[in-house]
Design a protein around this nucleic acid. Structure first.
Lengths: 219, 219
DNA sequence: GCTATCTTGTGAAACGATTCACAAGCAGCT
DNA sequence: AGCTGCTTGTGAATCGTTTCACAAGATAGC
């Protein structure tokens, strides 16, 4: 299979969200142009994105909302539950643990870790329950046993790379990083980073260079 | 001036962070290859990125860490303070308000808003101080007066577009969006979005399509 | 001052993603 | 059954970004 571009995968997510919203509004059929308008792209782009995975529409009609929703969920691997651990029980980590969107989309927070003895043993709320914060030292024991699918990393930048190395060695194959550093992982490990500092600097740059049309293309 | 690609701006941020780290370690000179290794790119890319803005190095030697740092800060518009308002005092909003990186890089949280009467009037901690949560209804009055540079949006998805429209009408010209929706703004407004659901789905996709080399290119 | 060595800055080439444009197919109407 | 109007799926063209490759400077040693 051909390598799928990151930008394509992002758009598929956007289409899926719009489809779910359309279904709630009772829409049963949708055209590539409708999808494009909402996703901030073009109808040709929508069709090209979908064409990598097959043929889902009816010429002259468009796409059946429920069918395309199911196909996209399948393509994105959302047909199952994913187990997520949160590493770093600071402000952001605990806020994320309670994020509704996690559970709604099949991502289940199964454990929260911190290295601070003050925090270990404390209870944190996660969507639909409570968890006891575990000691990061237990990662090497827990990960091979619990086999979490995804690790969300919310630790200070200076600790991040060391923890990634440990997580990968223990068997984690997907990481969502919130630490403001550039991480290195073997290329059989999936990595996405959310870097607040970088986003703010992007805005700062845009504001400072207003002369040009300014950055509006939101990824 | 030529339009600068978003990817270029992101890399400039990464270079800046590495330069600051190098300065702390006492390094005074750095080559494009050093910068590339750490930023996960190539030396040619580094030089091309910098070449859009001028010529900062010495052939045969490399770049002076302090000079390049100053130039990058200038390019990115970090030579001044930016005033930031946070709209939405929920879990994520209040966690972000306390994010150290904000202040350290010159982004000063000047106000926090919520529409919930329960929250309005309450005190929230921001980096290095306290703020009273204001009513979102006051946006139309406050923004023209306070002229915040950047609005960080941490509200439920269904409220996001409406608030963006109000913020833009009131004069905000840069928005950092955390709501999981695709926003539309006029193209003289800078917009960046951080979408957890999208990132998680990207990881889900990568895990489900392991056969290929898997996504490792971290943006 | 000359030579050897190193790294920048930059056109040109290669690559990858987006847009164009149109044939193919489907539904509805007569 | 044939015609009309509409929308998909996709090769080809275009556009933008990354990589290549090398001349132009700069330093250090002799």
């Amino acid at each position: 299979m051909k390598r799928i571009a990151d930008s394509t995968v992002r758009r598929l997510s956007a289409y899926l969200r719009f489809l779910e919203e359309s279904a709630r509004r009772g829409v049963t059929t949708i055209s590539s142009d409708d999808l494009a308008k909402r996703g901030g792209t073009t109808s040709a782009q929508v069709r090209k994105d979908l064409s990598f995975f097959g043929s889902f529409g009816k010429r002259g009609l468009g796409y059946a909302v429920d069918e395309l929703t199911a196909s996209l969920r399948d393509i994105l691997g959302l047909g199952r539950q994913w187990s997520v651990i949160i590493v770093g029980a600071g402000k952001i980590g605990t806020a994320l643990a309670q994020y509704e969107g996690f559970k709604r989309r099949g991502f289940l927070v199964s454990a929260v870790y911190d290295r601070d003895p003050q925090k270990v043993g404390q209870t944190v709320s996660v969507t639909g329950g409570q968890l006891t914060v575990r000691d990061i030292a237990q990662i090497e024991r827990d990960v091979p046993r619990d086999k979490p699918d995804i690790a969300v990393l919310t630790v200070p930048g200076e600790d991040a790379q060391g923890l990634v190395d440990r997580l990968v060695r223990a068997g984690v194959r997907a990481i969502l990083n919130f630490a403001p550093v550039q991480l290195r992982v073997p290329n059989d490990v999936a990595l996405r980073s959310v870097n607040m500092a970088m986003e703010l600097e992007g805005l700062s740059f845009a504001l400072s260079n207003r002369s040009g049309s300014g950055l509006t293309g939101d990824r």
